[in-house]
């Protein structure tokens, strides 16, 4: 404080730039919301750059995703799956792509949300016109950037280390990955709103997430599951994203392992699109509800705990 004393005292005679507002009417709700979206896009990109610049985060990411995946491929090998012309590593590349989206969406995203709730980021955004829209847009953009970069790394690792096949249909890969990512954001936000604090995220979400991974056909063909389980799996975006990704990589000879013997791409788009739209409508409401329970005094109460961690 003392270091800046002189600076501040010398400026006391100057008036603040611009003066106060005179009460001119501002843009209506619609205008502000469009602005919230626009500001959110930039916000998400800025936050992504912050993540990239954070060396520890970057190394964790590289080792956690690419390293683990490379080891897994080297361990299991790259022989073809029995009775098909498709290699093990192609299967694993698809599974790991879907897993990355899902684990980021259901673990990293809720944890980021609870952290933002605890340190006052959400509350700050709530003080700004269109702030919640900007916040959610920003989180989605950061998340997308992470998925795109990790997806490229996984694909490259699969191809280089495991000799996995390149996707046959890049367009389907792109939209299934992007739409799948956007579709998982609302689930992540919902979990983030429900969790009491960041530390409980892993415990609360880990097991259900693994169960969903196993039943959703990204590890084991979904047709191996009993029919009721298939129905439950189809209610979640993970199944549909996995289906879209398999459609992008696999030859049609693999269709025997799919429900109805079809890639059902229109349904993939409908299911993922429905999750994305529902999320965009519900997520702002949930975030507003959860920030209503936050306040400056509660931030103060939590301060010692947060600093100790």
């Amino acid at each position: 404080m003392t270091g800046t004393t002189t600076t501040t005292t010398t400026t006391t005679t100057t008036t603040l730039p611009g003066g106060a507002a005179t009460g001119t009417p501002r843009a209506g709700g619609g205008g502000v919301n469009a602005r919230g979206l626009r500001v959110g896009l930039r916000r998400g990109w800025t936050e992504y750059l912050h993540l990239v610049r954070d060396r520890r985060e970057l190394i964790n990411n590289m080792v956690g995703t690419v390293g683990v995946f490379a080891l897994l491929i080297l361990w299991i090998g790259d022989g073809p799956v029995e009775g098909t012309g498709v290699s093990q590593s192609t299967f694993m590349t698809i599974g790991f792509l879907a897993f990355t989206v899902f684990s980021n969406g259901l673990m990293a995203l809720p944890m980021a949300l609870t952290t933002d709730r605890e340190d006052g980021t959400l509350l700050r955004l709530r003080t700004l016109p269109g702030g919640i829209t900007a916040y959610l847009t920003g989180r989605a953009v950061t998340f997308l950037c992470q998925i795109v970069v990790q997806g490229v790394l996984i694909l490259a690792t699969g191809v280089v280390v495991g000799d996995a096949g390149l996707p046959r249909d890049w367009l389907t890969l792109t939209w299934a990955l992007l739409l799948g990512t956007v579709a998982v954001v609302p689930l992540g936000v919902a979990i983030g709103c429900l969790l009491p604090n960041p530390k409980t995220a892993a415990g609360a979400v880990g097991l259900p997430m693994m169960i969903l991974m196993v039943t959703s056909g990204v590890m084991i063909p979904v047709t191996f599951m009993p029919e009721p389980v298939q129905w439950v799996s189809q209610a979640f975006p993970l199944y549909w994203q996995g289906l879209g990704l398999r459609a992008a990589f696999m030859p049609d000879s693999m269709l025997a392992a799919e429900i109805a013997g079809s890639w059902r791409l229109p349904w993939v788009a409908v299911a993922l699109g429905a999750w994305a739209v529902a999320g965009m409508l519900l997520a702002p409401v949930m975030v507003r509800r959860v920030t209503r329970r936050e306040s400056g005094s509660r931030l103060a109460d939590r301060r010692p705990a947060a600093q100790a961690s």
Partner: peptide, 13 residues
């Protein structure tokens, strides 16, 4: 909201 300025306690955001 655009006409208000808000400074809460203990922001660490």
């Amino acid at each position: 909201r655009a006409r208000l300025g808000i400074v809460l306690q203990n922001w660490r955001d």
